[in-house]
Design a binder for these strands. Structure first.
Lengths: 289, 289
DNA sequence: CGTTATCTTGACGACTATCAACAGTCGTGG
DNA sequence: CCACGACTGTTGATAGTCGTCAAGATAACG
């Protein structure tokens, strides 16, 4: 916990060729991490994400599709937003996995959140303030940058989209609280089970779980920095989950063999993710949220 | 970390007479925890809090003073908002200390945040959704309840107040991230030092630190549930901080004897609290944020 | 003045860290 | 095509932080 000597600083220097979309890991090898519609067009993860909390009109969807069409590649392990930056655009992860992180003076790192497709890096559109943490890609990512002016237009013409964004922001906060609970009160195996359940559920919500397995580019080293343990302990804990028959790895794909068992171990209740819209009786009567 | 058998469930049954304002702890005994102006009128912590990020006009202040005048007493250790509630008002802590918490199935509890005067319990005014965690008083508290209609009016007539509330919400998020870092990567003594620095700085921002000491109603049991350790370890760690000459207790007041040393141990950098408005060169030129 | 909550201390054990070494995979370059 | 180096995953031995259990001391409260 104290001195993590070898630190892997994220650097834009370490750019590597983008091989992420080339299936190279046996198993579900042919499947691209990005979900496709029946007609083989790409599913838009932001639309999928926002469709859970709010009812998007076809117009809302069209606008979101247009806004997110201009994606930019970010190589693996590259800062998307540096700590101290004051970003002038709202950034959305469209493909790949990223993370929020903070570095400590002793060189250790703590990841405070994982970002999956459909997640916003800096959702606080009203105040583009200085970042108190960094955001970096874990796998190669596709991201879009939305200028504040576009958000302003959305606010007047597509209020439900804004509603969805606010809702997503609340969900992110809830996830942070759950991480606090996990780091404070769950043993390593339980917390790892919980984190896997979280990723599973969030990825499923944007159509990235197929046949109970999902692409898992997060290394044990990165997992350690998220779970607050060492890589050695991460390795042993993960071997434990495998030995118990809860999960299995097929190349870089993680398959959940026993979802009920994994949820039970992690005491995972998906409610905190706020994926579904809450409706009280009166809401249903009014028809409008 | 595993089985915390004895759990102290917050219950409204345990209501006790409000003796908080009766000074009963030697030392700075005569001082009420609430700061007073020179003319002995009460300082409004919400106004103090919001004054840091934004420039409030005297009109803004007057409105805030009016809105927060109707306070309600909450006894010690009483739920202010239950998990699962869908509160119909925004609640603000005006006096005392409260906490956000989650209970685990095994009976253990994790506190995810402390609320000090000027903090909002449920700042997400646009969406009054179901609470995914509980909020309870730690000490007796005075709180106000602001109906959504009032917030709506504020939005049109006092935009800077809303700006301040949003800013405060961002600061709360940042605090959560720092707790994740602390629970994941800081040893107990460092994390305790960090938490004390956090409370010190936040209380100072609303005028509740006098002569390097502040009212500390949080018990070691509650501290344990915040730091993710046992009460036994909390006790020993706290004794350690005392023995090192960093802090001292005078009744229920915590005096910081060596602020520099405490900050160094906890590697505390107050920047993440976003107490001060950030100004770039252009901001200063424009004069308007 | 007794009862309860809170704080304190000691002994022991469990979980996790640290240190070290090695195996497997992958991309690169000869 | 193979060798090399870098990264990632794996395993063993040992040490340290922290948890558990138990008991007592102190202080608050009716």
């Amino acid at each position: 916990m104290a001195n993590h000597a070898k630190l892997q600083i994220f650097s834009t220097e370490t750019a590597k060729p983008l091989t992420y979309f080339v299936s190279r890991d046996g198993g579900s090898g042919e499947v691209s991490p990005t979900t496709r519609n029946a007609d083989n067009t790409l599913q838009n993860p932001l639309i999928l994400r926002l469709s859970h909390p709010v009812d998007l009109s076809s117009d809302d969807r069209a606008v979101l599709q247009a806004i997110t069409s201009d994606t930019r590649e970010v190589p693996r392990r590259t800062d998307i937003i540096h700590e101290g930056d004051r970003p002038d655009c709202v950034r959305v992860v469209m493909e790949g996995i990223a993370c929020r992180y903070k570095l400590l003076r002793d060189g250790s790192r703590q990841i405070t959140a994982f970002l999956v497709p459909g997640d916003l890096c800096n959702p606080h559109i009203t105040r583009l303030q200085e970042m108190d943490h960094g955001i970096a890609s874990v796998s190669p990512c596709m991201i879009v940058e939305i200028p504040p002016s576009t958000i302003t237009k959305l606010a007047s013409r597509h209020p439900r989209v804004i509603d969805g964004l606010v809702w997503a922001s609340l969900a992110d906060e809830s996830v942070m609280r759950e991480w606090i609970v996990g780091l404070g009160r769950r043993m390593a195996d339980r917390n790892m089970a919980h984190l896997i359940c979280e990723l599973y559920t969030r990825l499923e919500a944007v159509g990235l779980v197929e046949d109970r397995s999902f692409h898992m580019p997060i290394t044990q080293n990165e997992l350690s920095d998220a779970l607050g343990i060492t890589t050695v302990h991460t390795n042993r804990t993960m071997a434990d989950l495998r030995d118990r028959g809860l999960i299995a790895f097929e190349g870089r794909w993680l398959r959940v063999l026993d979802l009920a068992g994994l949820r039970d171990l992690g005491q995972f209740n998906p409610q905190y993710l706020h994926l579904r819209r809450q409706r009280s009786g009166s809401d249903l009567e009014n028809g409008e949220v």
